[in-house]
């Protein structure tokens, strides 16, 4: 990634974090809008950085851990902005910007050199599969943040500036981001299956990455069934959402380092 663009992105997210924090502490609505503006600018810049790398590499920059972290943080901010605009809730902005900063910071410690794509990755499916997966991961990350916030706040009577109870909003956001993430995780598994069938002639091979994606899928399927059929909302739901995100992290990162398999080039 271009160093200048990378640094501007980092600074924007840092500024956004500061403004979100100040907005939450002093309850100044105007500052919140300002924070959102900076976050949007940061996202534009982030997008530009990805495109610059795309052009420089002559291929989609979706092939190793460094590149995937850049995409993950990008998707995280994108999905967060959509959630913020739809649900008019700003309190998550603090934690989401911290998360994005942590991801970008850990990316900066990794090998960022551009290497050619191995034959198995030379496919249009790469773009679709990776984007779909990371949009899903990002949605789950937000459900994780909102669940944690819910568990911290549920005993207190917290209200949003508009007067709505904060807990209800957090619970709704957890649910909605999980449904969205579930759709994209499913699409991620399906695009992976179709691609694998195109490349190797089998749509499922019990590769550890596939298996862990399925485990994650089962956990969220469990969440959705318990919520819809047994009324597991709020505290219980929040815990399942947290468990689900731990599985996401293991699928995304743990599998690459701990379990051998087809996706192990992503190191």
């Amino acid at each position: 990634m271009n160093t200048l663009l990378f640094n501007i992105t980092l600074v924007s997210y840092m500024l956004a974090l500061i403004f979100y924090a100040v907005c939450a502490i002093f309850k100044k609505e105007g500052l919140g809008l300002f924070a959102r503006g900076i976050l949007i600018l940061g996202l534009f810049n982030h997008t530009a950085a990805i495109f610059v790398r795309w052009v420089a590499a002559g291929r989609p920059p979706f092939s190793n851990m460094y590149e995937s972290l850049i995409i993950f943080s990008w998707a995280l901010i994108l999905i967060y902005l959509i959630v913020e605009i739809i649900y008019r809730i700003r309190i998550l902005g603090i934690f989401v910007s911290i998360l994005a900063l942590l991801i970008l910071a850990s990316a900066s410690g990794l090998d960022s050199s551009i290497k050619p794509l191995m034959p198995a990755l030379q496919s249009n499916w790469l773009v679709i599969h990776v984007l779909v997966c990371f949009i899903g991961y990002a949605a789950f990350a937000i459900s994780f943040v909102s669940s944690i916030m819910y568990l911290i706040l549920y005993k207190r009577e917290a209200f949003e500036p508009g007067g709505r109870p904060l807990n209800t909003s957090l619970d709704t956001i957890t649910y909605k981001t999980i449904t969205f993430g579930f759709l994209f995780l499913t699409l991620g598994i399906i695009t992976g299956a179709v691609w694998a069938n195109r490349a190797w002639g089998r749509y499922w091979g019990w590769d550890p990455k596939e298996t862990w994606a399925l485990i994650t899928w089962f956990i969220y399927a469990f969440y959705l069934h318990m919520r819809m059929l047994k009324g597991w909302k709020e505290v219980k739901g929040a815990w399942v959402a947290i468990l689900g995100f731990l599985a996401v992290i293991f699928t995304y990162i743990g599998v690459n380092y701990l379990l051998p398999g087809l996706h192990s080039y992503i190191k």
């Binding site: 862990w212 399925l214 485990i215």
Partner: peptide
Amino acid sequence: ITLALVLGTV
């Protein structure tokens, strides 16, 4: 099944 899958990857 989830537990079996976990075992299968471990």
